[in-house]
């Protein structure tokens, strides 16, 4: 079933397996971006497609307790993951089944799954990061 659902936004990830986020790199500035801008915002040069690393560390997070947007689970967690290998921090959903495992610096792994609905109200796929339980702090 999952494979029939569309991503919440086209072009930002590949479902896989393995799931991968589609970023971009400027070969001149050696800087990565997510999501992909039109051109490099530093030099206005052409960008190359690049897959971002599928592992990172929780930079910070928040748990929303009130009625969620997009029929997301209640509660759910969002926040920021530091993709150290790529040199960027990205905003993300976290695994709604593992809120209690979230912590600063916790290793997390990329997943793609059916969570909530899109702007048209249709069920859709979203990317999220799940904590590696017992993972390095």
């Amino acid at each position: 079933m999952t494979s029939e659902l569309k991503p919440v936004k086209e072009g930002i990830f590949e479902v896989g397996p393995p799931p991968r986020l589609r970023g971009a790199i400027c070969p001149e500035c050696n800087q990565k971006f997510f999501p992909r801008p039109m051109v490099c915002p530093h030099c206005l040069g052409e960008l190359q497609d690049v897959y971002l690393s599928t592992e990172g560390k929780v930079y910070t997070y928040a748990i929303l307790r009130v009625k969620p947007p997009y029929k997301l689970p209640r509660p759910y967690a969002v926040g920021w993951v530091h993709l150290e290998a790529d040199g960027i921090k990205i905003h993300t959903l976290f695994d709604p089944e593992k809120l209690s495992d979230l912590d600063f610096g916790r290793q997390v792994t990329l997943r793609v799954g059916a969570i909530g609905v899109d702007n048209n109200g249709d069920s859709c796929l979203r990317y999220y990061f799940t904590p590696q339980v017992g993972g390095e702090q």
Partner: peptide
């Protein structure tokens, strides 16, 4: 809840104004 805009990726990924500041508070 106030959101930044229905096409921005962080909004589609569940970011709302209050989670933005709760994330900062926790950090």
């Amino acid at each position: 809840l106030l959101q930044a805009g229905a096409t921005e990726l962080n909004v589609l990924e569940g970011g709302v104004v209050i989670t933005n500041f709760a994330s900062r508070a926790n950090l």
